[in-house]
């Protein structure tokens, strides 16, 4: 039995804007085990980003409790791939990717090695010294993914990281992510709008209701690994789960 890595109990986040109270999500209770791959799926505005931000410690919850286990003090607990990429315009690709490592004061040549490894993996080698304004949207996104990977956290929080990529790059990076995940035993929490992507990647999918987001359903994806995208898409299991989630999500979207 694997250890519990993240446990949320009745987690609720409300924002107060002037006199209005906006509930971003409410009553989220779930248990994520060490090394599991979770996807959060739900209609736009249902609170996925906010939930990730609460998990990252960037916002505090209004109600409920969070338990997160930090095993190895030499590693950061979590690193986030932000929905807006948010790479620094004033740093070149190399320094953007090195950011977390530099903040942790690792040895410069170790930082160089790690950074070069991910620059290569992300196909960014020719752009190592380019500034963000010289990059395409998809390249910026890859820089922000590399920044998180390079930081080697215990939990990877990824907010629609592949949204701006073309299909080919998306599949490549999905496979790369799975490889890294399988090797490292990290816990991954991944937000996506793509049911297809969620099924291909995850152990569990949390489907959220429309705003204000609650848990609509949690799906176990028991497709064996390692997974190959072509095989998965043509398997009957995939079709069943896809149909299930699709109908459930459509119901949520058509309410509004």
């Amino acid at each position: 039995m694997k250890d519990v890595k993240v446990e949320l109990k009745d987690l609720t986040k409300k924002f107060k804007i002037k006199k209005n109270i906006i509930t971003a999500f409410e009553d989220i209770s779930l248990q994520i085990k060490e090394g599991e791959f979770w996807c959060f799926v739900g209609p736009s505005g249902c609170g996925k980003t906010t939930l990730l931000r609460v998990l990252a410690g960037l916002e505090s919850p209004t109600d409920g409790t969070i338990y997160i286990k930090h095993v190895d003090d030499s590693k950061p607990l979590n690193s986030m791939v932000f929905q807006e990429h948010a790479i620094f315009p004033w740093m070149d690709v190399k320094n953007n990717i090195a950011y977390g490592l530099k903040m942790r004061k690792l040895k410069p040549n170790l930082i160089d090695d790690i950074v070069d490894f991910y620059i290569d993996k992300m196909g960014l080698t020719p752009f190592k010294h380019a500034y963000p304004h010289q990059l395409s949207g998809g390249m910026k996104q890859r820089v922000s993914i590399a920044r998180a990977f390079a930081n080697d956290p215990e939990i990877l929080l990824m907010d629609e990281p592949f949204a701006n990529l073309d299909e080919q790059n998306r599949v490549l990076l999905q496979q790369e992510l799975l490889k890294i995940w399988e090797k490292s035993g990290k816990t991954v929490i991944f937000v996506t709008h793509s049911i297809d992507e969620a099924i291909f990647l995850s152990d569990k999918i949390m489907l959220m209701t429309r705003h204000p987001g609650k848990i609509k359903n949690i799906y176990d994806i028991n497709i064996k690994r390692p997974r190959v995208i072509e095989e998965i898409r043509s398997s009957p299991q995939y079709a069943d789960i896809f149909q299930d989630i699709w109908l459930s999500l459509r119901q949520e979207v058509s309410y509004s």
Partner: peptide
């Protein structure tokens, strides 16, 4: 300055 950069700095352990 866009607030998101402060979030990135915090998330990546900047003092």
């Amino acid at each position: 300055l866009d607030k998101i950069y402060m979030d990135v700095a915090r998330n990546y352990g900047a003092s």
